[in-house]
């Protein structure tokens, strides 16, 4: 038996991330029209998902072991996936293109 990768604190993470999902979703549905958001807050909230997604994705494809590395297999794979997402409406294609390039470079060329 290999030791477990995660301990029981993983379930605490799930519960808190679940709360961080259900509370925003239920917020105004539960409160009704008793409260209104200021318009500046509403506009600021619109940018949070794009900022957070980019902040997770960009370092993941540009950095290798914490070092800036513009020529790495993940960046090539990300470019292929982004191209597929921009050019096609097929929901599977970005995954096929991205994973195809990544596997070809890593397994085929040993990068």
């Amino acid at each position: 038996m290999t030791p477990p990768t995660f301990d029981a604190s993983l379930w605490l993470i799930f519960v808190l991330v679940g709360l961080a999902t259900t509370l925003p979703r239920a917020s105004f549905i539960v409160l009704g029209s008793r409260v209104a958001l200021p318009s500046l807050v509403q506009r600021a909230l619109r940018y949070a998902p794009a900022a957070a997604l980019a902040a997770i994705v960009v370092p993941d494809v540009l950095l290798v072991a914490g070092e800036f590395s513009p020529l790495n297999p993940k960046l090539a794979a990300a470019a292929a996936a982004a191209g597929a997402a921009l050019l096609s409406r097929n929901p599977w294609l970005p995954f096929i293109a991205g994973m195809g390039v990544l596997l070809a470079l890593r397994l085929g060329f040993g990068l």
Binding site: L16, V17, A20, T21, R25, A26, L45
Partner: peptide
């Protein structure tokens, strides 16, 4: 982790409203 989840979910506050 929780703050990141919140940031990703903030759009739901607007949908909910």
């Amino acid at each position: 982790i929780v703050a990141t989840a919140l940031a990703l979910n903030l759009r739901f506050v607007i949908f909910s409203a």
